[in-house]
C-alpha cells in the first residue's frame, strides 16, 4: 500500500438548526492511498456529500484533522482554502454545474484563470483536457448544445485541467442513462489507471461502484466497511 494522500482523524461535523444540533458525521477515521479510486456509498442523508466536501476543502469539520496531500486543511482560512482547492482538487457534480453563458473551452479554462499561465499556455492545457475526455470537437459549444454525457465530460475536463492531486465526484452519473454512465465511469477509470489520478466518488449505483478500486459504505454518519474491489 502506497502512502496516504487523504487522511482523516476523528473528524465530526455538526449542524445546528435553531436549538437542535444535528450530528451529521460521527467521529470518523479514513485513509485514502495515492492512486486509489474510492467509491463512497450509502443511503440518502448518511453524510456522503458532507464527507466529500470536507475532503475537497469546501467545508470545515466541527472537530478532527483533515490531511490532504501532506497538508492539514481543516484550519485554513477561507481565502487560503480557496487557493488550496484551485491547486489540489478537481470537482465533478451530478448536474455538471457548467456556466451556461460560456463555451465548453471557456468553462474548462476557468480554473486556469487563477494561475499565472499565459493565454497561449491556457489554450494548450484546455485543448489537452478536452482531448482526454474526447470532446476536442465540441470546444466552441455552449452547455445547452451538449448532451448530458458531453456536459459531464466538459465538467471532468474542467476538473482535470489544473492537474489536481485529487478528483472529487459527487454522483457524477446520477443524472445519466446506463450507457452514458458507463462511458463516464470508463473515462474516470482511465484517468485513474493511466493518468494516476486519485478519485473519490460518491454514488448510489452499485454498478458504478464496481469501476472503483475500493468501496466504502456509510450509514448515519459513520463508515461501515472498507472493501477492495478485485
Amino acid at each position: 500500500m502506497s502512502e496516504a494522500i487523504v487522511s482523516l482523524r476523528g473528524v465530526t461535523k455538526n449542524y445546528t438548526r435553531g436549538k437542535q444540533k444535528i450530528e451529521v458525521l460521527q467521529p470518523l477515521d479514513l485513509s485514502i492511498s495515492q492512486g486509489d479510486f474510492l467509491a463512497l456509498m450509502g443511503p440518502s442523508g448518511s453524510g456522503k456529500t458532507t464527507l466529500l466536501n470536507l475532503i475537497g476543502g469546501l467545508d470545515q469539520p466541527s472537530s478532527g484533522e483533515v490531511n490532504v496531500g501532506g497538508q492539514r486543511i481543516d484550519q485554513l482560512s477561507s481565502r487560503a482554502l480557496a487557493q488550496w482547492r484551485s491547486h489540489h482538487v478537481g470537482f465533478v457534480f451530478q448536474f455538471y454545474n457548467l456556466l451556461g453563458v460560456l463555451s465548453a473551452e471557456k468553462n474548462v479554462e476557468l480554473p486556469l484563470l487563477l494561475t499565472s499561465l499565459s493565454k497561449a499556455q491556457r489554450a494548450k492545457h484546455v485543448a489537452t483536457a478536452l482531448e482526454i475526455v474526447g470532446l476536442a470537437d465540441r470546444a466552441k459549444h455552449k452547455p445547452s448544445e451538449l448532451s448530458g454525457g458531453q456536459a459531464q465530460r466538459v465538467a471532468i475536463a474542467r476538473a482535470l485541467v489544473a492537474d489536481p492531486t485529487l478528483l472529487v465526484c459527487d454522483e457524477p452519473t446520477g443524472d445519466l442513462d446506463r450507457k452514458t454512465a458507463d462511458e463516464i465511469l470508463g473515462l474516470l477509470q482511465t484517468l485513474n489507471r493511466e493518468h494516476g489520478k486519485t478519485i473519490v466518488m460518491v454514488t448510489h449505483d452499485p454498478k458504478a461502484a464496481e469501476y472503483a478500486t475500493h468501496q466504502l459504505h456509510m450509514d448515519k454518519g459513520s463508515l461501515i466497511e472498507q472493501s477492495a474491489n478485485t
Binding site: 469546501l58 481565502r79 484551485s86 470537482f91 454545474n97 456556466l99 480554473p111 487563477l114
Partner: peptide, 11 residues
C-alpha cells in the same frame, strides 16, 4: 458557488 468551488476567492 461553482466559481468559489474552483478556488475563486471571496474577494
Amino acid at each position: 458557488a461553482v466559481l468559489k468551488t474552483l478556488g475563486y476567492t471571496d474577494f
